[in-house]
Write a protein that binds this DNA or RNA. Sequence first.
DNA 1: CAAGCACTTTACGTTAACGTAAACCTCGTC
DNA 2: GACGAGGTTTACGTTAACGTAAAGTGCTTG
Lengths: 147, 147
Amino acid sequence: MTQTSAPADEASQEALPRQHRHYTIGELARMFEVTPRTIRFYEQEGLLAPRREGQKRIYREKDRVRLKLTLRGKRLGFSLAEIREVVMMYDAMPDGNARQLWRLLEILADKRANLERQLEDIRLMRMELDDVDHRAREVLRNLGHEA
Amino acid sequence: MTQTSAPADEASQEALPRQHRHYTIGELARMFEVTPRTIRFYEQEGLLAPRREGQKRIYREKDRVRLKLTLRGKRLGFSLAEIREVVMMYDAMPDGNARQLWRLLEILADKRANLERQLEDIRLMRMELDDVDHRAREVLRNLGHEA
DNA sequence: CAAGCACTTTACGTTAACGTAAACCTCGTC
DNA sequence: GACGAGGTTTACGTTAACGTAAAGTGCTTG
């Protein structure tokens, strides 16, 4: 874990064989700048399901991706429940019955609509920020002249 | 308030003289699909400052705009505290001293950075939604063939 | 004038998303 | 073998953003 000159001694990290690395909770936490507590909480909420090695949680690539998606969702203001809705159905897909799949499509359309509205909101808020910015600089300019 | 055939009798609504209409809390609430409680809460948090007429709150155009901005901010996942930060400084601008104005510019840059990241997040999440969507439709198609 | 709205204040309740603390294992290492 | 760094569970605490209920005010309308 010394970051530099890792000997890669044990029988697990053989030159990073691509896709199936695994991570500890602390590693993931540092990667995404969250606390372990947060990650455990997401597990408890059904968003992650790491394997165990004895007592310890072992996270695989898939879990890392899920965490990434979850955090992205959060940044966009989705609740954990909403995120779970999509993520879990995604997993249930392969063997999914038709009703479930249609339901999934519904949810997806819903989320997408949400995103579109956010795009518009961003556009508008950008304009307003620009406006405020301009005014502020104007006032500053005038202050300079008066001084 | 019967919506249709309003007589506009009193000395306040003379043919809607443009900019200085005023609203009751209930009107605003219906306009934006929030509860009066929410509006009062925003006032308590320093985001609105309606005038009073006796006991009752009177909202002017400015207040309506503020509420709109506030709700837009919320949809983008900003906290009320963050929103207040911008909104209040905006009002303090005209007579603002230089330090305050620079601080405001800082905050604005911050918010903008936030928006840019959201745009990227939206882009990515859109792609993922599309992906899931495609897969789901694929599975559905196969189900159809098997049936 | 009683009834019914729309408004008011006060105050306690609720939910989501964690934070924080205590008390416990289990390594590698000095 | 003590100890420090990481991991674990359990459980109570906290914050934001309202919801909800109770009790009162003021108008106007049958």
